[in-house]
Write a protein that binds this DNA or RNA. Structure first.
Lengths: 181, 181
DNA sequence: CAGTTGTCTTGTATGGCATTCAAGAGCAAA
DNA sequence: TTTGCTCTTGAATGCCATACAAGACAACTG
């Protein structure tokens, strides 16, 4: 009982912490957000954060998982849509986390925690895309390649500013080339 | 004369500086390489570097231009090769600067100097690719879109580890889809 | 109730970082 | 010899992520 109460408090506190961290990471960037800044925003001492997370990178992973699970909630909305719409949806979903996408890539070499998260994330996404493509009659091997390409296109569009028309043209072309009528 | 002599010395010193910085950036990463470390390697005081470059980002830009001009030397080798081979060549050229590609993207938001370099770089590359595609009979608008896609694919391949087969498959598919027989 | 234990918070410190500033060294021009 | 320019430095500033040991407080135990 009491143990349970504590666990609830822990979750609540973590949630508060992660939502503040998420807000700052998204607005100021990962490098632009110091642990002290997050702590100040929460009204606690900077080192308090280290009781909850072993490092800033681990806090980032927590934030990433948070964003992810939020996105997964919206996932059922588009499972039945065509490929192009699915990609457009992914872009809209990740657009607010744009900053974090490049941050993750930049920290891959330096942080094992981030690397693990990144690899797992890609495995998940690619599996999902491959599944979709195979349902559309694409052969396994080709589907694997196309999933990678689709991922690169989404990442590229997230990393570089572009117009609606550009996005539209790229997604349309990819969908057409991937699934010839 | 004397002025000239001095200018020569300046260039020599800058070259020494940038080649050391390049070596360290490429082996330890941008974040993993401190200004002090570069200075130590050169046997000078850390703040000496600031007489030559206003900031670490400006030093990075100098290094990037260095790598670029080195690559441009090899460019004539492949101007007459087909699209797929050109992309494979670009991948080989930039592979050693892999680290720096993500670094540039990560620092885009924080550094105006980097942003300028990045934008200029993309304009240059896309213009070159568009030119090639148009020579193959692709219409302007379509060529523009394909150039962006090609860039995203190269960046994606640089950022993510992959097998020779994967690379081969992606490049082949892209070339086929871009230039239907 | 008193005492122990575990959870959470903090003060304080460390070593690193990019960068700044004012003072100097060395050499060229006047 | 003096002036001025280019280059180098010592010393400092204000950040940063993080470590450690001591404390506050509540929950559990006897």
């Amino acid at each position: 009982m009491a143990k349970n109460k504590r666990d609830i408090d822990l979750k609540v506190k973590q949630d508060e912490l992660e939502s503040t961290a998420a807000r700052l990471f998204l607005s100021l960037g990962y490098d632009g957000t110091s642990m002290s800044r997050i702590a100040r925003e929460l009204g606690v001492a900077p080192n308090t954060l280290y009781w909850y997370y072993a490092s800033k990178d681990e806090l980032l992973v927590a934030v990433l998982n948070r964003q992810m699970s939020q996105t997964l909630v919206h996932l059922p909305t588009i499972v039945d849509e065509p490929l192009k719409d699915k990609m457009a949806w992914a872009l809209r979903e990740f657009e607010q986390s744009r900053e974090l996408v490049t941050t993750v890539h930049a920290r891959l070499e330096q942080s094992a925690v981030i690397r693990e998260w990144h690899d797992q994330f890609h495995r998940f996404v690619e599996a999902a895309v491959i599944h979709t493509l195979k349902a559309d009659g694409v052969a396994q091997e080709r589907a694997t390649m196309l999933a990678t390409v689709g991922t690169f296109l989404v990442e590229g569009l997230l990393a570089h500013p572009h117009s609606k028309r550009q996005r539209e043209a790229i997604l349309q072309w990819f969908a057409d080339s991937a699934l010839p009528a």
